[in-house]
Simulated assay, not measured.
Amino acid sequence: MPDSLSQLLASRDWIMADGATGTNLFNMGLPSNVAPELWNADRPDAVRRLYQDAVDAGADLFLTNTFGGNASRLRLQGAAHRVRELNLAGAAMARDVADASGRKVVVAGNIGPTGEIMAPIGTLSHARAVEMFHEQAEALKEGGADILWVETISSEQEFRAAAEAARMADMPWCGMMSFDTAGRTIMGVTSAQLSALVERLPNPPVAYGANCGVGAADLLRTVRDFVASGNERPIIAKGNAGIPHLEAGSLHYDGTPEIMADYAWLARDLGVRIIGGCCGTTRDHLRAMRDVLESRPAGPRPSLEEIAGRLGGFSAIQTI
Rank of each mutant, 00 (worst) to 15 (best):
A94G: 15
L124R: 11
A248L: 04
R296G: 05
D13V: 04
M118K: 12
A139M: 04
I274A: 06
A163R: 02
A92Q: 15
G115E: 08
D225C: 13
A228P: 05
E164F: 03
S101T: 07
G309I: 03
G112A: 05
R103T: 11
L311F: 02
A267G: 09
L266V: 10
S6I: 01
D56K: 03
A119Q: 14
I320Q: 11
I147F: 10
N231D: 13
T64A: 02
G188M: 14
M176N: 09
V83Y: 07
W14L: 05
A20E: 03
S315D: 05
R103G: 13
K238Y: 11
I117K: 01
E306R: 10
E306P: 00
T181C: 13
G239C: 08
A139K: 02
P244M: 11
W265R: 15
D254Y: 10
T114D: 01
W14G: 08
A20K: 05
D262Y: 01
P172T: 06
A20T: 07
R200Q: 15
P120K: 02
A207W: 14
G102N: 03
A91S: 14
E156H: 03
D99I: 00
F314L: 12
Y253Q: 08
C212M: 08
G122P: 10
W149L: 15
R73W: 01
R310A: 13
P244N: 12
R128L: 13
T181L: 14
R75F: 05
F133E: 08
M118I: 10
D18I: 00
L25A: 08
W149Y: 15
M168G: 11
D284V: 00
K104Y: 03
H81K: 08
I259E: 12
L148P: 13
A79N: 04
I243N: 07
H81N: 14
L219M: 15
A54W: 01
F226T: 12
G239W: 04
A20Q: 05
D13P: 05
F67A: 12
V130N: 04
I275G: 03
